[in-house]
Computed example of a mutant assay.
Amino acid sequence: MKKLWFIFSVLILSIGLTACADKGENKETAGASEDTADSKTDAKKELMKFYVSITQSINEVDGDLNAYELSETEPTAEMKTKASESATAVAENLKKIEVPANLKDQKADLEAAIKDLQASYETKAEELKKDAPSLDAANETFMKADEKIGSLFESVDLMKSSINAEVNS
């Protein structure tokens, strides 16, 4: 009889431990999905802050470049010189931008986009020193960067951005 009680007690204890272990695993699984959701929300916030910092860095110094590009009249030599200096200043500002550690999953793509933006402005600066500048290649590089950043926004479930709309209007 004692053996029967012992076996029955062990059986009940085993069932109880199994049930507790399953609940613990479910909590861990739920915790992991909560962590994933939290990290995605954090990535969204960080990406938005980073995006704003990029646009601010550009908009701080691109006024003369925008004035040149949006001019409805024939730009003067002085406008062209100021636009070139403005493009150079933007490229320098972009060199100072660092991707935050919280965006480690997007870091390579963000760095590539910033490099494209920088190259675009450097090309504009050089072209504006010529008698007949053509900004087509620079604008094409800029749009590649714009597309990369927009795709990154979509990858974290944000609406696609357009840095072009933010800085060239």
Rank of each mutant, 00 (worst) to 15 (best):
G24D: 02
G24S: 10
G24H: 11
E25T: 01
N26C: 00
N26T: 01
K27V: 00
E28Q: 09
E28H: 06
G31E: 02
G31T: 00
A32F: 02
A32V: 00
A32L: 05
S33D: 01
E34G: 00
T36D: 04
T36N: 06
K40A: 05
K40M: 08
D42P: 00
K44F: 01
K45S: 10
K45E: 04
E46H: 11
L47Y: 09
L47E: 04
L47R: 13
F50N: 07
Y51E: 01
Y51D: 03
V52H: 11
S53Q: 11
S53A: 10
I54E: 02
I54S: 03
I54G: 04
T55W: 03
Q56H: 08
Q56P: 00
S57A: 15
N59S: 09
N59Y: 06
E60H: 10
D62V: 03
D62S: 15
G63Y: 08
D64K: 15
A67M: 06
A67P: 02
A67H: 09
A67Y: 07
Y68D: 07
L70D: 05
S71K: 14
S71D: 12
E72W: 04
E72S: 13
T73K: 15
E74W: 05
E74P: 06
E74R: 15
T76I: 01
T76V: 02
A77Q: 13
M79N: 12
K80W: 03
T81P: 01
T81Y: 07
K82F: 02
K82I: 00
A83G: 12
A83Y: 09
A83R: 14
E85D: 10
E85A: 11
S86A: 10
S86P: 02
S86N: 08
S86I: 03
A87G: 08
A87I: 01
T88Q: 13
A89S: 13
A89Y: 03
V90N: 11
E92H: 11
E92W: 03
N93C: 05
N93P: 06
N93E: 09
N93L: 05
K96T: 02
K96A: 10
E98S: 15
E98T: 14
V99K: 12
P100M: 10
N102Q: 13
K104W: 07
Q106E: 10
K115Y: 06
K115D: 10
K115C: 01
K115V: 02
L117S: 07
L117G: 08
L117I: 04
Q118N: 15
A119V: 03
Y121C: 02
Y121A: 03
Y121K: 08
E122I: 01
E122Q: 14
E122G: 05
T123C: 00
T123Q: 10
K124P: 02
K124S: 11
A125Y: 06
L128Y: 13
L128H: 14
K129T: 06
K129W: 08
K130S: 12
D131G: 15
D131W: 04
A132S: 15
P133R: 13
P133L: 07
P133S: 12
P133Y: 09
L135W: 09
D136H: 14
D136F: 14
A137N: 14
A137I: 11
A138R: 12
T141D: 05
A145P: 05
E147V: 03
K148D: 04
I149P: 06
G150W: 08
G150K: 13
G150H: 11
S151P: 00
S151G: 08
F153C: 12
S155A: 13
